[in-house]
Nucleic acid binder design. Structure first.
Lengths: 200, 200
DNA sequence: TGGTGACGCGAGTCATCGCTCGCATTCAAC
DNA sequence: GTTGAATGCGAGCGATGACTCGCGTCACCA
């Protein structure tokens, strides 16, 4: 950020810029994401935008970062009271449900972020988030007895996170015909449950 | 294509253009993929490029299409003698190995295609390919007795293809530390094997 | 209330890039 | 050989869009 806004007026403007960036992304896609357009949508001049953002990408980064934060918050909130609980079908079910819910909340933006944006830009943020989830899963698998994942928790955690994320993402984005929401969840319960109990 | 090349000279040029498009993508990424640059790399003039390609995207499409075709060919070739075989661990192992091999063959281009390109452009081709694989899997699951996938082959096939593709893709692209090639394959054998044998 | 810096404006600059067009060159058929 | 079509050239047009700059306006402090 090029300059920190001091007065309330300018702080509000920065928020409007970010909100407009998101709106433009949702309403017109990444191709239309020009600084002029974002500024115009925010009801300000392009010059004003550059008072607080060094360049176009900085605006995009903030928009995307906020979106990932929201996703993370939603998952964390849904799962907060499950921490330290017993593993089993109901935990898998709840986790998958929370994941789906978080991704469903703004499908259009998800589509733009996941399929139109050059992923390289937001790569770092995303991998950081993923790594944290994976580390938590690893710890969980290593601590809780009775799960077969104990043989190599890191590998198992990597598999679980990749599978959960991609199944949820593909389902939300593609809305495959003939597969209802409840059914993906059940399939995941079967898949993950069987995987964790499988002999090594 | 705007015009079909008749003489050998011009046919060679079209090939050089496509090859250069691929090279530019690999060496400099999608941002550098300008028609002028591709033409220059091919040792021709931008005007000549437009003799045979209606626009920039047409060049990109051919490059990407050829890449997907190569991937499909590699998988098909590796699996051709397995058709109609018995399901089981060794089949899962072979399939996963073929998938990994196909994706590993040009990792840099894979990275560009999967993470830099606006996916919308090649979306149609990719979903067509995926659908064909899924349909084959569905058929296989429905025909072969003894697999639990028989309850709802379409759903099971969707899960299997999504999981296999994303695990392979993530592993090849991210090269996660501490997970060797053999180990992903073994994890997939465990995961898929357990899933297919799970009671419903 | 006057002044000073923060704020905001928007026409304009500059570079990029997709694409064209008029002309030169080469090839193949007779 | 001659001729006409096919091929190839590359300067340059036109549009787009990121970003700037000089000037007005507004808010806070003495």
């Amino acid at each position: 950020m090029r300059k920190t806004p001091r007065q309330a007026r300018s702080r509000a403007m920065v928020d409007r810029i970010v909100a407009s960036g998101r709106a433009v992304l949702v309403e017109h896609g990444y191709d239309a994401f020009s600084t002029n357009r974002v500024a115009h949508h925010a009801g300000i001049s392009p010059g004003s935008l550059y008072q607080y953002f060094p360049d176009k990408e900085a605006v995009l980064d903030v928009v995307v970062d906020r979106y990932w934060d929201e996703i993370a918050d939603r998952i964390a909130a849904a799962l907060s009271d499950r921490v330290g609980g017993q593993p089993g079908p109901s935990m898998i079910r709840d986790t998958m449900d929370a994941l789906l819910q978080a991704l469903e909340y703004d499908r259009v933006l998800l589509q733009v972020v996941a399929e139109e944006l050059p992923v390289g830009h937001s790569r770092e943020r995303r991998t950081t988030l993923e790594r944290r989830v994976r580390d938590l899963t690893t710890l969980f698998l290593a601590t809780v007895p009775g799960t077969a994942g104990g043989v190599s928790p890191a590998r198992t955690a990597w598999m679980l996170t990749v599978v959960a994320e991609s199944v949820a993402l593909r389902w939300v984005l593609d809305q495959p015909a003939g597969i209802e929401r409840e059914q993906v969840i059940e399939e995941m319960v079967t898949l993950v449950g069987a995987y964790l109990l499988a002999p090594r």
